Simulated scan of single mutants.
Amino acid sequence: MIPYRNRVVVDGDACPVKAEIAETVRSCGATALMVSSHDHRLVPEPGVEVVTVDAHDQATDLYVANALKPSDVLVTGDYGLAALGLARGAAVLTPRGKLITESDIDGLLAQRHFSARQRRGGARTKGPPPFTGEDRSRFQQKLTFLLRGMQENRHS
């Protein structure tokens, strides 16, 4: 088990920025906990603990939600999990580098619900744009900013 410092908890099943997270936590003196199902094998590396859970569709989210501590940074694109992270006191960052706040979450959940209703009714909804290098860079900058800010707050 990695000792607790500043920690990034990752919903690892569909996370496209795992390498950026590993690099950033090492450079900031933090740690990462990457959680994924058996379908998405991850490899532990220095500063990165890996937990593999059952392939059940909510197993990763449940593990992540239960592992979160106040002042963790949660990386997820799942707005339901993001809401749980905010309730637990975590900062929430999407893989595209968007910081989700308490003032954002209700609207994001409402949009998710609306889109799901449309899909169930047979409508096609537009997916996200292709992931870009700019998205990776934005994410890494925001994660670095969050982790360094946490270090400064802890030492003041």
Score class of each variant (00 low, 15 high):
residue 114 F to L: 09
residue 102 E to K: 12
residue 90 A to D: 05
residue 91 A to I: 07
residue 112 R to K: 13
residue 114 F to C: 07
residue 92 V to E: 08
residue 70 P to K: 10
residue 78 D to Q: 03
residue 72 D to I: 12
residue 92 V to H: 05
residue 106 D to Q: 09
residue 104 D to M: 01
residue 61 D to N: 05
residue 102 E to Q: 15
residue 62 L to H: 09
residue 103 S to H: 07
residue 116 A to D: 06
residue 91 A to E: 15
residue 107 G to S: 09
residue 69 K to E: 11
residue 87 A to H: 02
residue 74 L to E: 02
residue 72 D to C: 12
residue 92 V to T: 06
residue 44 P to R: 05
residue 111 Q to I: 01
residue 61 D to W: 07
residue 51 V to E: 13
residue 91 A to Y: 05
residue 72 D to Y: 06
residue 51 V to T: 10
residue 87 A to G: 12
residue 101 T to N: 00
residue 75 V to I: 14
residue 101 T to C: 00
residue 84 L to R: 12
residue 67 A to Y: 02
residue 67 A to H: 07
residue 84 L to Y: 00
residue 48 V to I: 15
residue 48 V to E: 03
residue 79 Y to V: 06
residue 83 A to C: 04
residue 67 A to R: 11
residue 60 T to Q: 11
residue 65 A to Y: 03
residue 46 P to A: 12
residue 90 A to R: 06
residue 80 G to N: 14
residue 111 Q to T: 07
residue 79 Y to R: 03
residue 93 L to K: 06
residue 72 D to F: 02
residue 65 A to V: 08
residue 68 L to M: 15
residue 58 Q to L: 14
residue 82 A to Q: 01
residue 107 G to M: 06
residue 94 T to N: 01
residue 59 A to N: 08
residue 54 D to P: 02
residue 63 Y to S: 00
residue 53 V to W: 03
residue 52 T to G: 15
residue 91 A to M: 12
residue 118 Q to G: 05
residue 83 A to E: 06
residue 68 L to Y: 10
residue 106 D to E: 14
residue 111 Q to S: 12
residue 55 A to L: 05
residue 45 E to S: 13
residue 61 D to H: 06
residue 73 V to M: 15
residue 50 V to L: 09
residue 52 T to D: 07
residue 105 I to S: 03
residue 52 T to H: 15
residue 70 P to N: 01
residue 49 E to H: 10
residue 113 H to M: 09
residue 100 I to V: 15
residue 104 D to F: 01
residue 67 A to P: 00
residue 82 A to N: 07
residue 117 R to K: 11
residue 96 R to I: 14
residue 49 E to L: 14
residue 57 D to E: 10
residue 51 V to N: 06
residue 91 A to K: 13
residue 80 G to C: 07
residue 93 L to I: 01
residue 63 Y to H: 14
residue 81 L to P: 03
residue 117 R to W: 00
residue 79 Y to G: 00
residue 83 A to H: 11
residue 103 S to I: 09
